[in-house]
Design a binder for these strands. Structure first.
Length: 177
DNA sequence: AGGAAGATCTACT
DNA sequence: GTAGATCTTCCTA
C-alpha cells in the first residue's frame, strides 16, 4: 500500500535518504492528470565538504539547504532543472539530488535527467516548497523489489571523490554509467 | 551591468 | 572517450 513519505523520512543523513529513495514513486499532479515516476538515480550532497554542492556558494541555496527536511530545491543548470530535496535537520545544509526517474504511467518524450523536470513540469514554482505537505507533488512508497547499486560520480571531469551516488542496478533510465 | 560558475547534453573521432 | 557549446542564475561593484 502506497503511503506518502513524511518529514521523518527526510530528516536523516542524506546518503540514507538517497538510498532509500530509490524505487519510490514521485507523484506529480497536474490538474486532472497524475504522473508517476519511479526514482532510479539519486545523489547525496553535503555542505562545504562537497565541492559540487551549491551550499558552498554561501548564498540563497545554502539557506534553503539549511531549512527543514523535505524542502524542495530546484535549480536550472545547463538548460535542465535539477530537483533536490533537503535532508537532515535544520542547519545541516545537506540535500539529495534526484537525477533520474523512470516514467510509470505516461510517455516521456526525452530520456535521461531531462524527463524528470520537463515531463513533470518542475520549475522554479516548486522551489522552496515542502514536498511532505505539498498537494501537487509528493513521494510515495513503492513496493518494487529493486537492487541498489552505489558508485562514484559519473565521468571524470568533475572531482567529487565521494561514493554518494545511488542508482537502481540495470535500470536503463539511469543517465550514464 | 558584468563576470563567474555549474550536479549536462550532444556530436564527433 | 573527449571536447566544446550554451544557458540560467547568483554575486559583486
Amino acid at each position: 500500500m502506497a503511503s506518502k513519505l513524511t518529514t521523518d523520512f527526510f530528516n536523516r543523513d542524506p546518503k540514507i535518504v538517497a538510498k532509500e529513495l530509490l524505487g519510490k514513486a514521485i507523484v506529480r499532479k497536474l490538474g486532472k492528470t497524475k504522473l508517476k515516476g519511479k526514482i532510479t538515480e539519486t545523489e547525496a550532497y553535503y555542505d562545504g565538504n562537497d565541492p559540487a554542492s551549491w551550499a558552498r556558494f554561501n548564498g540563497k541555496y545554502k539557506k534553503i539547504m539549511e531549512m527543514e527536511a523535505g524542502t524542495i530545491l530546484v535549480k536550472m543548470v545547463h538548460n535542465n532543472w535539477l530537483f533536490n530535496i533537503v535532508t537532515s535537520k535544520k542547519g545541516d545544509a545537506s540535500a539529495v539530488l534526484i537525477r533520474a526517474i523512470e516514467p510509470l504511467n505516461f510517455n516521456a518524450r526525452g530520456k535521461g535527467p531531462g524527463i524528470l523536470t520537463k515531463e513533470l513540469k518542475i520549475n522554479k514554482e516548486q522551489n522552496n516548497k515542502n514536498i511532505t505537505t505539498n498537494k501537487e507533488i509528493w513521494i510515495e512508497d513503492n513496493l518494487d523489489n529493486i537492487e541498489i547499486e552505489k558508485s562514484f560520480r559519473i565521468g571524470v571531469k568533475r572531482d567529487l571523490s565521494q561514493k554518494l551516488r545511488f542508482f537502481i542496478k540495470g535500470n536503463k533510465n539511469v543517465s550514464r554509467i
